[in-house]
């Protein structure tokens, strides 16, 4: 199923993401996804997230699909040129994978192979354009595809709490112009900033899912504040995480915070994207508390 169909039905669309392992044993990922994420609309599979080499996103998507889940194939421009990207897109369509999240990708320097060549032959915008072109039956080189062309729901990301939010909106507009169907955002901890962002973003007329991370500890929150672009955990939330260490460790505080964020943002957007970062087991409780 295409995620865009759920948006069209007016559903508040819930997605979460899983990261493939660094190895060939995927049973644990599949089990967790089946147990905790089977009730939601779709599951993102990250593409060598943070430039750390892992099992492939496409293969993992196929396994999840065979288990009855709806995968979203994340595809970055960091590791493949336009030939490899288009080839993987055709492979995805052949395997029945219908949802994409198209990203530029972190630089290779950020990950566990800093010596690797950063590719970036295309970027998020030109990759969306490329998918659109494939859907019309022609590849980026102008050559016709044989037979029926692929059709995808084309997603992209935007960073609503970035310190350069106007530049982010300009880029979002370029993604819409290139043919993007829906957006998932970077993690939001400041709903008021997200609401302000949505006031401007709604002009593009594309569904937006607010990105949510369950904060696991004060240390994790501080780390994000210092290192993760477009993410800022405000002081009062840091205090909340600090107050009762046991409660925070058990994930109760984090789930409370994340549920509150979803509730505050819900009237302004069309869904939520949960980045559980290993806490997939807490997703059902989070959704319950958020009233979804």
């Amino acid at each position: 199923m295409k995620i865009t169909e759920a948006f069209e039905r007016g559903e508040f669309v819930v997605t979460a993401e899983v990261g493939p392992p660094k190895g060939i044993h995927i049973e644990h990922v599949v089990e967790e996804a089946k147990t905790y994420l089977s009730g939601i609309t779709a599951v993102n599979v990250t593409d060598n997230q943070s430039s750390v080499m892992r099992l492939g996103s496409l293969a993992t998507c196929k396994v999840l699909k065979d288990e009855g889940l709806t995968p979203i194939f994340q595809l970055t421009c960091r590791d493949r040129n336009r030939i490899a990207l288009q080839s993987d897109l055709l492979s995805a369509a052949m395997l029945g994978i219908e949802n994409l999240l198209l990203l530029t990708g972190d630089h290779t320097r950020m990950g566990d192979h800093p010596q690797a060549k950063p590719v970036f032959d295309l970027d998020s915008v030109s990759l969306i354009h490329t998918v659109k072109q494939l859907e019309s039956g022609v590849d980026l080189g102008g050559n016709e595809l044989v037979g029926e062309p692929p059709k995808f729901a084309k997603g992209a990301v935007v960073s609503p709490c970035s310190d350069s939010v106007d530049a982010q909106l300009a880029k979002m507009e370029r993604k819409v112009a290139a043919g993007c169907d829906y957006f998932q955002t970077q993690a939001v901890f400041e709903p008021e900033k997200f609401i302000k962002f949505m006031e401007k973003a709604k002009q593009f007329g594309k569904p937006v899912q607010v990105g949510v991370i369950i904060p696991k500890s004060v240390g994790m929150a501080r780390f994000m504040n210092n290192n993760v672009a477009g993410v800022h955990v405000p002081d009062d939330m840091l205090e909340e995480l600090k107050k009762d260490k046991e409660k925070t460790k058990a994930g109760i505080t984090g789930v409370e915070i994340a549920a509150r964020i979803i509730k505050e943002c819900r009237p302004y957007c069309q869904g939520v994207h949960i980045m559980a970062l290993g806490w997939e087991a807490k997703v059902p409780e989070l959704l319950k508390q958020a009233g979804i």
């Binding site: 530029t104 950020m110 970027d123 998020s124 970035s162 530049a167 300009a170 672009a229």
Partner: peptide, 20 residues
């Protein structure tokens, strides 16, 4: 741009500085 992007910024800048 450290990624030589030609369609706008990536989401990687923090406080105006490049992720790399």
């Amino acid at each position: 741009c450290s990624k030589s992007l030609v369609n706008g910024q990536c989401g990687g800048a923090k406080n105006g500085k490049c992720e790399v």
